[in-house]
Amino acid sequence: MVCGAGNLSSPQGGNISSAWVGGVESSFTNFVSNIVVARLAPILAAFCVLKAALDAAEGHSPLGSVIAGIFLLSVSGLVQLMQSWNSGSEFATTDMLSSAWNFLTGTILPEAAGLAVVGAIFNYARHRPFMPLVGAGLAFVSVSAIWRLCEAMVG
């Protein structure tokens, strides 16, 4: 059935009247919840931890793999967080992006500043450049202001 103008103007509640489609939805939901989120993601996170150890053994930074593991372990919480960002309006996409930007600048980057300080100390001890990490740490705690600076430069 092709959706007509009347269908588009009515609010979409997401209800499924067909039993067959409802069964498909239930199977897919169970697959995502019980297989992907509950079992597959923790296993992949464990492999990320193993990869972090192997990265460190090769002399590379293990941080990327550790953060990927944390991301995989918290994927259900992230989904709920993103669902809370969905305004449901015609601007839902841009609202999501705006909320993601605020989450990044207000929550994630100040924590990343702490990782930058740790990395700077390690680089200093190993005679590697550490000032870029100090500058990045400063930028992480003031990235909104840098955005305002760009806006002021353009405007």
Partner: peptide
């Protein structure tokens, strides 16, 4: 589980323990 909490705990562990 929360990604921000995980990152925060990682930072605290690195900075205050390791």
């Amino acid at each position: 589980m929360n990604f921000a909490n995980g990152l925060l705990n990682l930072t605290n562990w690195l900075g205050n323990v390791i």
